[in-house]
Design a protein around this nucleic acid. Structure first.
Lengths: 210, 210, 210, 210
DNA sequence: CATGAATGAGGTTTCATTCAT
DNA sequence: CATGAATGAAACCTCATTCAT
């Protein structure tokens, strides 16, 4: 022990994150009530008691999982929106592509499911998601569309609804993956869906004959 | 009360439906695990034990609630799709209007939330919903779009994705109502959303200048 | 209905006996706690409520089953003992033969099992069995042996223990049938056992060389 | 208290045995269904929940009680039988004496009652008792008697029945203690009973005049 | 007499939380 | 910091008993 090599020391500072990661998996799999702290502790490689060194209660841990899932996604979304002030068409295409990538490569679907399923039991979490992510993203998108309308690029109409029109299929695709893919239903190719949907909304699906 | 309706009439036939209705409310509010049988029984106006005269277990009751929610919605959806073989534009407008009405006037939102939230814990319910409602409705819509493509009315593209493009905002609107409306978020005017969205998908949102 | 034929009338007076018979089967099979009144009612061909027209409680019904099993067996045993005042040898042989027949042809084994298993929970039943059956039979047997001792037929020794020596194997044979026969253990041939055992007790199993 | 024995010592190793001991008492007193886990836990000095740290279910605990009662009795029985290969007379006398001591000083009566009372509901337990204790002991006794017959010590006759003849009164004495002693019936002096019974079986109870 | 729907007390079981070590 | 044995409140479920019909 002379050399002072930290043989058995675990990185204390990493613990909470490891626990949250394990909790995320279990909550996403079983829902809030179905998740057992025993299971979370085991997956995190700690004892059940250790959870209480970092989180007051199960609800507290759930909150940490859901709220910590906001920030990263938040960054990704707003960064894209902020970086493209130009014409609405390319912006939406770019945005959809990025989002398709995000939802494909990150477990955001599990978070979405948890927020939907437990919104009534944890209104504060719905609040956090709404205020910090959904409202801001939808607001930014709405603003971009409104600006495009002002520039004469986009037809008249409620820009907030247009924003929902643009964004919905991706969300539904994610939910589909969480809900119906596990029972064997054919999933959607998210990037392709994003691409085709944006084009449809921008230019319509009807031909001149239609 | 002229007819002298018996106060304490036994009503074996009505009871299950009353219980399912009460259970629906509680499950939609609290989720599966959060729902207490005591609460359900009280709302149904029966004792806890009476629930077990009609349903074997809590899960059984949950299944009844979710599966019995399929049929009525199923009727509504397919009836509309079947009744309009004509050009795709008016069909979609009609369809969207009807669906907006359905989701506004029926508690289908609660069912959707339950299916999404408990799909992992009750895969059979996800299966029922997929097979009997979602798959059929999406299939019918896909078929209608494919037919329109064959007639030259609709641009090339994956018709199943087009179907999702058309239907998603209504679903998201419903989820929004279940998730964010309870915390005070501004809800969407579903009929207006349906109308504007269908027009957007049909003809695009871009102006000629866009 | 002119002829006054009792079309749908069931023999009221037979009901209690039918119920006790059905209850006997179920109690013997499952024990007191394991027996469900639903099951008993079904086997008796009456409704659950009807049981309460004849018996106050489940315990009451159990008591009826156990106590009503005493009398008939009681008669058979004492009749034999009383009718043979002669030499002890033939008496015991006769008695053993009769008892072997009784335990083979009547479900007394079920009763014995119930009394043993529930004696602590229903001391009054143990009391009834002891006072009305066991004590009397053992007493009569003891008296017969004591009389034989007085006549010089039987060696000195505690006559009550001798009585137990004589009677035990039959009881154990009955218990064996209730306990180990259901799992496939080889049963005992009760008449043969009775015959051989009485002979053994009377004359010993040792040869002169033994 | 000199040694400073820790008051609230955790004793993972001792707990299961303590619980089984407490459970034995309660099961022997009330039977399986009549035993309340609350009662068992209280007697074991633990909480109700603690039972589930060591046993999956109430049935599991019952099984543990019954099966763990086999081994000690098994030792006692076979040790005696194995130690005496000599002439059958002294062997049986020795055996009976030892067994009388065992049944007097150990709570084997409670176990016997439980096995008899719940054999139908827990056939596996009857199986364990039969295979590991009863069958082996009866088999060994039967073999010893058959050997004595081969040596000409014992009269012809079914040796298995002879074994039952020899062993039964002790078993009945034990059952008597469990069943009728609690209601005030005169118990049997087990050692005396064993002694007199073996002598009776060996040499008969009849005098030459009998 | 007879029914069977309904009751509700009571039991087993689970699991978030605590705390001596 | 960390453990994990222990707790006990709360939930689901059973079933003897009742009573309007």
């Amino acid at each position: 022990m002379q050399a002072g090599a930290p043989k058995f020391r675990r990185r204390k500072e990493a613990r909470p994150a490891e626990i949250v990661a394990a909790a995320f998996e279990v909550f996403a799999e079983k829902g809030f009530a179905g998740a057992k702290l025993d299971d979370i502790a085991t997956r995190a490689g700690v004892s059940k008691g250790a959870l209480y060194l970092y989180f007051e209660t199960k609800e507290d841990l759930f909150r940490a999982v859901v709220t910590q899932g906001v920030a990263p996604n938040f960054e990704a979304v707003l960064a894209v929106l902020a970086s493209h002030p130009g014409p609405i068409g390319p912006l939406l295409e770019m945005l959809a592509g990025r989002m398709a990538e995000v939802v494909t490569t990150t477990p955001v679907g599990g978070l979405v499911k948890m927020v939907i399923g437990e919104a009534r039991n944890f209104p504060e979490l719905a609040q956090v998601w709404h205020d910090q992510l959904v409202s801001k993203a939808l607001g930014a998108l709405t603003a971009a569309i409104a600006a495009a309308q002002a520039r004469g690029e986009v037809k008249p109409g409620d820009p907030r609804m247009y924003a929902l029109s643009v964004a919905s299929p991706l969300l539904v695709g994610v939910i589909w993956r969480e809900t119906f893919a596990p029972i064997g239903a054919e999933p959607f190719d998210m990037p392709a869906l994003a691409r085709q949907h944006v084009r449809a909304v921008l230019q319509g699906i009807l031909t001149e004959a239609g």
